[in-house]
Design a protein around this nucleic acid. Structure first.
Lengths: 337, 337
DNA sequence: TATTAGCACTCCTCTATAGTGAGTGCTAAC
DNA sequence: GTTAGCACTCACTATAGAGGAGTGCTAATA
């Protein structure tokens, strides 16, 4: 158990280091307001805090720096939720100014606002299309042998694919297919589309029209519909302004990580709601050893939810980021669009 | 006019520097095969080439490095078109293996292949949607007061917008609107859609249905259709492997440039076809002082064309990039999709 | 006259050295 | 239990010298 004084000192050190990125020395702390102990006392306490694993030194005679465990403790016990400033509120609410609100646009803009407000990199995972349900099918012919298949979901998302039309199909045949699809498959979530198609629609279509393989196999290729919860980025270059990323190698690794869609998705906690903080190696990605990731989920309308992540150095301003994320996800959830 | 010997020396210097990124010294050149002159002779020639502005020194006693003018001369007069290797051909043709060929996917994959083959960054400007012509309209209702408006173009591109439905509109009213639109506006290029809408469809709709403002003004907001020729990137981090980008600042500026859609578009020559090379300051972007950009345009099917750009250091392997771009745009144009 | 060998000179790069200052750990006094 | 004092550590900076790659110029050579 830490004493009050130790708590106070740990807090000051973390806050100071977050602000300055410089190792914090005992004299520096002693000079702070609200600290009535001498530098020597603080040195003793710091030595204890280091023994307990909360602090580290960069070299024998340097000031102290929070360890991962130190940040973890800070986040778990010392983080008082900060009230969000009216400025930040204004910035975030500017998102909803436009009359016509469109999901993709709002998300894109959100990513950019988030990275501006926090000075870190933001990543937003769009609503998972897989869970949307089919509202309507349509097929629009382009040429004799090609057409566009369109699926509109209940949330207004539109998926479309180029398909080739079998030679023996007439326009009215296509119309029939569309009718059958609309008849049988409306209300089915995209993730189950392929299954249901095979179970329910395929035989019917075969009965009416004979071979359908060429036409439909490609439309409903499930892998292509893994819209995967589209990923939006904001402030990718913000990292470059952080002193901990003056190392080209780290930058490269991080950037490469962000180019890999699959890896980026793994930084989001699978099923969790609320705000999550992962610090340094907790991310279990070599490239993010020195990063912390704060994630939050939002729900749009009823169920479908997406996630927001802020990536910054472990030395990130947790207070601020948490309060901004909290406010933003609430706004997202509150507005119905 | 340069002598043969000067040409030969300039060529060797540029080739060597492109390969090694190290300033080239006279002894080094003298040792090369096919160079029968002594180092001293070469030194004299190099001094002359420097006076003429083709070479530079990094400091008084360093070897020579090509100047911008040197690269320009090299590109204009010394660049022998290199035959593309079968390996590269294979890699590029792998693009067209899939049966169902989809524009967006092919382009995305192209960007990635290009950056892999060249080790530089690739940027592809997709076909300009503005020039596509309307093939069909559709409006799919979602809730009582919202719907999705869909426009399919003759090239199979699908644009869609969330719109809100005026309270007094019934489903059959919406059907009427769609019919009118399909009646009057099919065949119109997207860029003229707003105009034509106002001229031809608006009054008709008004006659039939009264006020239509709320419904249509948002659908056809021309600015939102500036699909702008979507931009696809490949190998954004490849720069980081180039020794000339060990400077954090340069990297930042370049990355920031690439985040700005509008600026990126300005690197493409406006109306030109064929392959264009811009070297260093010819790009007139501070961030690209040390970059060369090679652009090429491709046409898909009939007229609509997009562009491809490769961004690398001025010390880029022009021979190779040109041959790859040339082959690739030809493939693009050849295949009809 | 064109080419080349030779040599002095320049300047980058690397290494070693010393000096400075911030910060610590420990001891002894309060 | 707290604090002042002091020796010690170590990063950082500046300086100097050695080594080496490369040049420019001069004079000899073909």
């Amino acid at each position: 158990m830490l004493t009050n004084r130790q708590l106070q000192i740990l807090q000051v050190i973390v806050d100071d280091f977050i602000a300055t990125a410089q190792p914090v020395g005992s004299r520096q702390i002693a000079k702070k307001e609200g600290i009535p102990f001498s530098a020597a006392t603080i040195r003793n306490e710091m030595a204890d805090l280091e023994d307990l694993g909360f602090l580290e030194k960069t070299h024998t005679s340097s000031g102290r720096v929070p360890s991962e465990k130190g940040y973890r403790f800070y986040v778990d016990h010392l983080l008082k939720p900060q009230v969000i400033t009216t400025q930040d509120i204004k910035a975030i609410q500017s998102l909803f100014q436009d009359r016509v609100i469109e999901t993709e646009q709002v998300i894109r803009k959100s990513a950019s606002i988030l990275s501006d407000l926090t000075t870190y990199t933001s990543i937003i995972l769009g609503p998972d299309v897989q869970l949307h349900k089919v509202k309507q099918f349509a097929i629009v012919s382009l040429t004799a042998d090609s057409a566009v298949a369109i699926i509109v979901t209940d949330n207004g998302h539109v998926e479309n694919r180029l398909i080739s039309i079998p030679k023996n199909y007439s326009p009215s045949d296509i119309e029939k297919v569309v009718n059958i699809l609309n008849d049988r498959l409306v209300g089915v979530p995209l993730e189950q589309l392929q299954n249901k198609l095979e179970q329910e629609a395929a035989t019917v279509i075969k009965q009416h029209l004979g071979a359908y393989e060429g036409l439909l196999s490609s439309i409903f290729d499930i892998h292509k519909y893994q819209g995967e919860g589209k990923i939006y980025y904001g402030g990718k270059t913000n990292m470059l302004n952080q002193p901990e990323f003056h190392d080209l190698n780290k930058v490269r690794m991080l950037m490469e990580l962000m180019e890999r869609t699959s890896q980026i998705q793994s930084i989001f906690p699978l099923d969790e709601t609320g705000i999550h903080i992962r610090i340094g190696s907790e991310n279990s990605h070599l490239a993010m050893e020195d990063c912390s990731v704060i994630t939050a989920s939002y729900s749009v309308g009823s169920e479908q939810k997406g996630s927001i992540a802020i990536i910054g150095p472990t030395r990130m301003d947790y207070k601020r980021v948490v309060s901004i994320l909290d406010f933003m996800t609430n706004e997202f959830t509150k507005r119905i669009w």
